[in-house]
Simulated scan of single mutants.
Amino acid sequence: MEYLVLDVGGSAIKYALMNDELEMLEKGKVPTPHDTLDNFKNAVHNIYNQYKERVDGVAMSLPGLINKHTKKVQVPGALTYNLDVDIVKELQAVTTSRLTIENDAKCAALCEVEHGSLKGTDVGAVCIIGSGIGGGITIGDKVFTGTHGFAGEFSYLSDDWTKKEGFDGKWGYDGSALKLVAMIAKAVGKEPKEIDGLQAFEYCNQGDERALSALKAFCDTIAMGLFNIQATVDPDKIAIGGGISQQAILHEYTQKSLDELYEKMPIPIPQVQIVPCTYYNDSNLIGALVNYQKIYNKK
C-alpha cells in the first residue's frame, strides 16, 4: 500500500510517496505559503492531485498544537493563518477523508520510538533543537500528549522565572539553534547574520576557545532543560534531534554540562542516557506515516 506523506515546515512543504516498509518511492518539496490559509490549502491540494489515484490516504506533520477538545489549532507556530482553524477538516475538503495530522515534534518522537533511538524504551523523550525546542514524551510505543495535546511542548519550559514576558527566560528561546549561532557570532566578533549554523560549528570544531566558551554556556542551558525533563518523567533515554544535533561536539558538551549537574547533587540520583536521534531530515515524514498507520491500519 502507498501513502502520501507531508512534512510542513517554515520554509518548505516536503512530501514523499511512501509504502508500508517506510520506503520513500518519490520525494519533492514546494515553498510553504505564509500569506493565507487558502494558498496553503491550494499547495496541499496540488501535491495530492499528483498521487490521488495511487495512495490510501494522506499523513501530515504540521507545526503547532491542535487542541484535542476543540479540534482547532490553538498554537499555530509559524503558520499564523491556522489559528483557531479546524485544519483537519479544511485539508480533508481538498484531499481525502483519510487524512491525519500530528505535531511535527510528536511525529519525530513516534519515528524514534517505533524505529529509532527510543525503540524498546519504557519511557523516552525527544528534543528537537531548531528555531525553538520541539518535544515529545513516549510511553511504550505511544506519544503522551496530555489533556489538550500540550504535553512535551518543551519550548515553554522556564529557565528563569524572573523573566515573565513572552518567551523571555523560556527554554525554547534560550536553547534554540538561532540563539547558539548568535552566541557564537558574538563571541568571535561577528554579527549573527554574518554566519550560519555550519560556520558557527566550524569555529567550535577548529578549537576556537571563544566559540567553545559560548557553546559551553549554551549547553549548560540545554542540560538544565534535560535535567528538568528527567526529574519530571524519568525517561530511559532522551534523543536529541534537529540540524545541529548532527554535530558530535554538541553531544559532547551537552553531556559534560549534564554530568556537572549530577556531580553537584548531594545524593546519587539516576542518570538519563542522552542519544542522538537516528533519523534527521526524514524523521517527521516517517513519524507522520507511523501516526497514520496507528489510526487507520491499527498497527
Rank of each mutant, 00 (worst) to 15 (best):
T162G: 02
G124K: 03
I238P: 03
Q199I: 10
T254D: 10
H251W: 10
L250P: 00
I222G: 00
H148P: 03
T121V: 15
I133Q: 04
E165S: 13
A182E: 14
C127D: 02
G166R: 11
E153P: 03
K186V: 01
E165G: 11
E209K: 14
K186A: 15
F154C: 08
G135Y: 09
P192V: 10
G169I: 10
V233L: 13
D236T: 05
C127V: 15
T221W: 00
T254A: 09
T162V: 07
P192N: 12
Q199M: 08
I249S: 04
K170P: 01
G132W: 00
L178A: 13
G152H: 09
A177W: 04
G132M: 09
A211N: 08
T162R: 15
Q199A: 11
D236I: 01
C127F: 05
N228Q: 12
Q199G: 00
I249N: 10
G207V: 01
T221Q: 13
E202Y: 04
Q206N: 15
T145W: 05
G135D: 05
K164V: 14
L226E: 00
F150M: 13
S213D: 12
A214V: 04
A185G: 05
N205F: 00
G189S: 14
D141A: 10
G197Y: 00
T145S: 15
K163Y: 11
T254P: 04
Y173T: 14
E153W: 04
A125H: 06
G146T: 00
L180S: 07
D174P: 02
A211C: 07
I129Q: 05
T221S: 08
E209I: 03
T121G: 09
L118N: 05
L215Q: 00
V233R: 01
E194N: 08
A182C: 03
K256I: 13
V188F: 07
S245M: 09
D160A: 08
P192C: 10
S213N: 14
G134Y: 00
W161C: 09
I184F: 06
T221C: 13
S155F: 02
Q199T: 13
V181Q: 02
A185N: 10
T162L: 12
G146E: 08
S131Y: 09
Q206I: 04
K163E: 13
G207M: 00
F144K: 09
G149V: 10
E191Q: 14
Q206C: 02
